[in-house]
Design a protein around this nucleic acid. Structure first.
Length: 769
DNA sequence: TTACGCACTTAGCAACCTCTGG
DNA sequence: CCAGAGGTTGCTAAGTGCGTAA
């Protein structure tokens, strides 16, 4: 069967922008448990050559013109280093510790600088959203009329209206308290006959916020009303038959101590509970909850036996699964009721879905990676911890009986409805709106518009940072090299983090000397940099990339006389970098590069990979491959699904079966043909026809299965969701769908379509990012 | 000039739900 | 009709980046 590893990223280009790290492990720990197949990717020479000639100016091929001036660079070295000898960062507290700890993280993987070409310099005309209103409804002021809330009643006759042209700059002001009822005229491409009425009605209910003006000056809303949060259910003590043993002896725990014990008991099967830090933190916090007697008896976690609790919870979840249909339905209905009551709010005349209306229940903190606080007790949140945010003229949510809120605020410069301070890191948690809401959607849209503005000046910025590699000032050089990484490799900015408070992870600006290795020559390429570090969520980033000689020399310079645990960019931090970016373009920050490069890559890859002659399944495979190219670029990994091998096998079995079927169908067709040849009658002719059709059908089915297998195999360790949701301008995907006449549903599921409703509505087939 | 608080986006995991095919 | 694969959703941790106070 065909199981070609053939990622779009292998397709070439002179600018190697994608990384390889998906082939390596997520973190040291996980690494131990995983086996990795290092598939060598074969690159496709044809495209490579094409690309090379097209983009000869970008990155990796510039060795020759950076050759000159080596000597003068050397001359500068000394000067450079102490030139702005001001602030060295102080990051020495835990250096020693780190030194000891940094042992593993090793294992290599094949590092082919996967290549992808970058599309440069294309500019599309700005769209300017303006207030156009044929049908201008008298604005409804609803603010203090909770009665009005539930229905958004866009009950207007409709009128075509579309000249909306957006404008990235928020030059326009929204008439705050006015809601212009926009009624769409076109039911774009929706000529379906049956069920039209229903659909029409539904659509009319959808509010098109993107056709309205936006607020300026930081105001996020004028009216906000909600019911407050839903608290975690109270603790239900264990039945007496579920016993806890200490040192073999049964102990009846006090409710407080018991609750915390159950948190641990529930997790017994989880790897967490075997980790020293987790156990230590848990035990320490647990003891705080104990009564004095308990405290004096229970002194060693190793002597604690939570088995019965563990079994109890397993039984419970089993029982839940075994519930009857009716019981399940009842539960579902109750949930739905809760959702209806607490899951929505009214913001400026519109009912909007809340993302997380439930307060996080107490439990043991599960940090990711090697987190120093894992296992600590995450305490129960009470109404007294809760800050409510809503408008003055709204019905303020009522706290649970006998309780009161910590504070009630009326701050319309923020988007959250509820907040509280969490006890592990002391950070603030929020209840906010769903991604489908106006307030999130606008921001998302704006994000892509900023990225599109970057597209217009990215060439200039690239030229600039390349120039800066030669700067006399160390700080400027570091900034330029860091920016180059951020641009080329889509690294995150890398804010500093407090030592010992979180897992030791880094981004670009916080890279340390130990995270890169320089190879003058490696895998047959010159000036290679080998990256190996843990990034966000302790996901490992492993990549080998060829860089320009000048970058390479600069890195050598930055690393000179430093310890492995010293900062690579010791004169740089995200704030310096972003300040600089701000000067280059309004609204530009490091993360815009990730958005930009992700989106432009998708657009470019779609162009390149989509074959007009192929069928829908194949086109979707191409889409997924384009998406995958981005996921690889952004290093969005996932643990291979536990059932991966098995499910792959199942598929293979199916494929084999299909092949047999085809063989059979072929033979039957042959037989029928022979029959027809002899008899030459109508009956046999028909038989031939139908056999032909049958064969075609199975062949098509086989194709589909094979495509599916390829897709799945390629996707083993790559998560597409994150980039799809956060980095890819949805209008690119929608345009692609429209262009090739593919249903949006094939690309976006329901939730995604809700989130991207704005894009689905406004992008047409020739949208250019 | 750095440290910190705050708001908001981005992230992977796992529980849950749904659809498929035996 | 049922099991289980696989998709979907919920959850909440972990980032970015801005503004302000020390």
């Amino acid at each position: 069967m065909v199981m070609v590893m053939f990622l779009p990223s292998q397709l070439s280009g002179s600018d190697s922008r994608l990384n390889d790290s998906h082939k390596s492990s997520k973190s040291d720990e996980k690494h131990k448990h995983k086996e990795h197949k290092h598939k060598e990717h074969k690159s496709k020479e044809r495209d490579k050559d094409r690309e090379k000639s097209k983009h000869s100016s970008s990155s990796s091929k510039n060795h020759s013109n950076s050759e000159y001036k080596e000597s003068s660079e050397k001359r500068h070295k000394e000067k450079l280093k102490h030139r702005d000898g001001s602030s060295d960062k102080h990051r020495h507290k835990n250096k020693e510790k780190r030194k000891e700890e940094k042992e593993k993280l090793h294992s290599s993987s094949s590092g082919v600088g996967d290549k992808i070409k970058k599309e440069n310099g294309f500019t599309s005309p700005p769209r300017i959203k303006q207030e156009v209103d044929d049908e201008y409804l008298p604005s409804v002021k609803v603010e203090n009329k909770p009665t009005k809330r539930a229905r958004i009643d866009d009950d207007v006759d409709f009128k075509p209206k579309k000249p909306k042209i957006e404008d990235e700059k928020r030059t326009k002001k929204r008439k705050a308290e006015e809601v212009t009822k926009s009624k769409k005229g076109k039911m774009k491409g929706q000529a379906d006959g049956a069920g039209k009425k229903k659909k029409k009605k539904e659509e009319e209910d959808k509010w098109k916020w993107w056709e309205e003006e936006r607020y300026t000056d930081g105001v996020k809303w004028k009216f906000l009303e909600h019911k407050g949060p839903v608290f975690a259910p109270p603790y239900i003590p264990l039945p007496d038959k579920v016993k806890f043993y200490y040192d073999g002896k049964h102990i009846k725990l006090s409710p407080q101590a018991e609750e915390v014990a159950t948190f641990f008991g529930k997790m017994l099967d989880h790897e967490y509970t075997t980790k020293d830090i987790f156990r230590k933190n848990f035990f320490k916090d647990w003891r705080k909850e104990m009564k004095p007697e308990e405290k004096s008896t229970i002194v060693d976690l190793n002597k604690c036996d939570f088995e019965e609790m563990n079994q109890h919870f397993k039984d419970q979840s089993e029982a839940r699964k075994q519930m009857s249909k009716e019981e399940k339905l009842k539960l579902k209905e109750e949930n739905e009721k809760l959702l209806q009551e607490y899951g929505f709010c009214i913001m400026d005349n519109h009912k909007e879905r809340i993302a997380n209306f439930r307060i996080e229940p107490p439990g043991l903190f599960r940090g990711r990676g090697n987190h120093p606080k894992m296992g600590m007790l995450k305490r129960r949140i009470r109404p007294e911890d809760i800050i409510i945010n809503c408008s003055k003229d709204s019905k303020v949510p009522v706290p649970p009986h006998g309780h009161k809120w910590k504070t009630i605020r009326h701050d319309n410069k923020v988007t959250w409805l509820v907040s509280w301070t969490e006890n592990i890191q002391g950070s603030i948690k929020y209840i906010m709106l769903n991604p489908s809401s106006r307030i999130k959607g606008e921001k998302d849209w704006q994000k892509y518009e900023t990225a599109r503005r970057l597209k217009k000046c990215v060439d200039k910025i690239r030229a600039q940072y390349r120039e800066d590699w030669k700067s006399k000032e160390m700080k400027v050089r570091q900034r330029a090299v860091a920016l180059y990484f951020i641009d080329k490799l889509a690294l995150r900015a890398g804010n500093e983090k407090e030592e010992g408070e979180t897992a030791d992870t880094v981004g670009c600006c916080s890279l340390r000397v130990e995270h890169i290795k320089l190879h003058t020559e490696l895998d047959g390429q010159e000036y290679m940099v080998e990256f190996d570090f843990l990034g966000k969520d302790s996901i490992r980033y492993y990549n080998k990339v060829p860089v320009e000689k000048r970058v390479f020399k600069n890195l050598q310079l930055f690393m000179e006389n430093k310890q492995p645990e010293d900062d690579l960019f010791d004169r740089l931090n995200t704030s310096i970098l972003n300040k600089h970016l701000q000067e280059l373009m309004d609204g530009l920050t490091a993360k815009v590069f990730r958005t930009y490069n992700a989106s432009i890559t998708l657009q470019q890859q779609l162009k390149e990979l989509t074959n007009p002659d192929e069928n829908v399944a194949a086109k979707i495979l191409s889409y997924n491959r384009a998406n995958r190219a981005v996921a690889i670029l952004c290093n969005h990994q996932r643990a291979p699904p536990k059932t991966f091998e098995k499910s792959m096998q199942n598929l293979q079995t199916k494929i084999d079966a299909k092949k047999d079927q085809i063989g059979m169908a072929r033979r039957e067709l042959k037989g029928a043909k022979a029959d027809h040849k002899v008899k030459k009658d109508e009956k046999t002719r028909k038989s031939v026809e139908s056999k032909k059709k049958a064969l075609q059908r199975v062949e098509e089915q086989l194709m589909k299965l094979e495509v599916q297998a390829t897709d799945r195999e390629e996707n083993k360790q790559i998560a597409l969701g994150t980039s799809k949701l956060n980095y890819l301008d949805p209008r690119i995907s929608i345009a692609w769908c429209k262009k090739w006449d593919i249903q949006t549903e094939k690309i976006y599921n329901k939730t995604q379509r809700e989130k991207f409703a704005w894009a689905i509505d406004m992008a047409d087939e020739d949208y250019e990012f």
